[in-house]
């Protein structure tokens, strides 16, 4: 099965699921003649038609893989790092979470291993502190303190 056929099947499925979800959308006393279900139905319908189109059309020859095996491994590591970040931000706060994100990503991105551990630890400190000051004091934008940290600093 070609990649286009797989993509077509997936978006066809998404379109059908969304159309089913749209049946639960109901108007109210403020709705006009056309209710809030019209637009999502049109979008889902469009997605279904595109999915069918991708499934039925003449398939081109397969192009080279999107990523190599090593590439997928790298994406996996970075994805895990990024998924963890919001949780750390919520529970441990901006300073800890940003230090973590900066340290891990600079380590991952240093493919040729040119940076020593010391430099990889200094970099997050050099960025997190000014960023904190910039957001918190210059912009007066409160940053997450962290649900676990908050009771400790009160």
């Amino acid at each position: 099965m070609t990649k286009d056929r797989i993509s077509g099947a997936i978006i066809l499925l998404i379109g059908i699921i969304w159309m089913v979800l749209t049946t639960q959308v109901k108007g109210n006393a403020f709705s006009t003649v056309i209710g809030p279900e019209l637009f999502p139905n049109l979008a889902s319908g469009g997605l279904i038609l595109c999915g069918i189109g991708l499934l039925l059309r003449k398939q081109k020859g397969e192009s080279k893989p999107f990523l190599s095996r090593d590439g997928w491994k790298r994406v996996g590591k970075l994805s895990l790092t990024l998924v963890v970040y919001p949780f750390m931000l919520e529970y441990l706060g901006f300073i800890v979470a940003s230090f973590y994100l900066l340290f891990v990503t600079v380590t991952l991105f240093d493919l040729k291993r040119t940076l020593s551990l010391r430099r990889r630890l200094i970099f997050p400190v050099l960025i997190t502190a000014p960023a904190y000051i910039f957001f918190q004091y210059v912009l007066d934008l409160p940053l997450p303190v962290g649900e676990i940290i908050r009771p400790l600093i009160r």
Binding site: S31, P40, G46
Partner: peptide, 23 residues
């Protein structure tokens, strides 16, 4: 297809005009 996905994402939340809650 991308545009349709964008429309779907854009329809999350209170609908315009009547404020009906969606998705």
């Amino acid at each position: 297809a991308s545009a349709c996905i964008g429309f779907i994402i854009g329809s999350i939340g209170f609908a315009p005009i009547d404020g009906a809650r969606r998705f």
